[in-house]
Simulated scan of single mutants.
Amino acid sequence: MTITLAVANQKGGVAKTTSVASIGAALAELGQKVLLVDLDPQACLTFSLGIDPEDLELSVHQVLTKGVDVEAVILETEDGVDLLPATIDLARAEADLLTRTGREHAIKAALEGVVDYDWVLLDCPPSLGVLTVAALTAADGVLIPLQCETLSHRGVGQLLDTVHDVRRFTNKGLEVWGVLPTLYDGRTTHARMVLDTIAETYDLDVIEPPIPKTIKFAEAPAAGRSILATARSSKGAKAYREVAANLVARGKAGPPIR
């Protein structure tokens, strides 16, 4: 059974796209078949996996707004994952979808024919607009990357309010899988304090281990690969492998009892 996980945080700069690419590659290393879906008009995920968005004639935009078959758009990548790419055209999708009945279900409907994957990871845009709501409607769970700094906490409450609304109106089965601490510098007291308070502040699970801050993440997109390929033995790559293993275990165990 396919597990669809939305990776969402309306705040930029929290390593959301890096997490999608790295977790996807780590899941593929574990023998899982993975589809990554780029829902950000900036197309950072697409670019970071070695595909130039400007060279694409078809993207997720045509799937969502023109009815193009998703299978005709999915691309293979060198990281062992498949990708439903984005281009700048996706910036128009919000406006195109706003006038459509059932717009919240657009992504779910587009992915209904995708049955050959163990995991579908949705890289949400840094906003709480139509595309993020549609991603949450299509997802079994949501993972929230969160930079280990106090200011990064701002807005998480809004995201959780949106999750609550999605549960009420479009996807009552949506589960918050937890917070993924990113850009973590364990040498600082502040980072350790923020990490210690995340679970208590939001009553959320913390996905372990925290992802360390390292220049290796910045270097990976230039090579068009994830950090698991460009710096296989780095602390960052090892951390994402552990996160992927923990997500697989969580997926097998089912939702937590609360």
Results as ranks from 00 to 15, higher is better:
Val248Asn: 04
Leu98Arg: 06
Pro126His: 09
Leu97Lys: 05
Ile51Gly: 00
Glu149Ser: 07
Leu30Phe: 05
Ala139Lys: 08
Leu97Gly: 06
Val163Tyr: 00
Leu143Glu: 01
Val34Trp: 01
His153Pro: 08
Leu247Trp: 02
Glu112Met: 09
Lys66Asp: 11
Leu75Val: 07
Ala139Tyr: 00
Gly129Ile: 14
Asp96Ala: 13
Phe169Thr: 15
Ile107Leu: 09
Ser127Thr: 15
Ile227Thr: 09
Asp40Ser: 06
Ile74Val: 14
Pro255Thr: 10
Pro145Asn: 04
Asp55Glu: 09
Thr137Ala: 04
Gly155Arg: 15
Val115Glu: 13
Asp118Ser: 12
Ala239Ile: 15
Val206Thr: 11
Met1Gly: 14
Glu54Thr: 11
Met193Trp: 07
Ala245Gln: 13
Lys33Arg: 10
Thr87Val: 03
Ala28Pro: 05
Thr170Ser: 12
Val73Trp: 03
Trp119Ser: 14
Arg167Gly: 02
Glu78Asp: 14
Phe217Met: 15
Pro209Ser: 15
Ala231Glu: 08
Leu122Ser: 01
Thr65Gln: 02
Ala222Gly: 14
Gly113Thr: 13
Asn171Leu: 14
Ser234Val: 03
Gly157Glu: 04
His164Phe: 01
Ala229Gly: 04
Ile207Cys: 07
Cys124Glu: 03
Glu242Asn: 12
Glu208Met: 11
Val243Met: 08
Thr150Cys: 00
Ala28Thr: 10
Ala220Phe: 06
Gly31His: 09
Leu97Pro: 07
Pro221Asp: 08
Lys11Arg: 05
Ala231Gln: 04
Ala191Thr: 05
His153Ser: 14
Val133Ala: 00
Asn171Ile: 13
Ala249Cys: 00
Tyr202Asp: 01
Thr150Tyr: 04
Gly102Leu: 03
Gly13Asn: 00
Phe169Ser: 15
Ala26Trp: 02
Thr150Met: 04
Gly113Asn: 06
Asp96Phe: 09
Glu54His: 10
Gly155Gln: 12
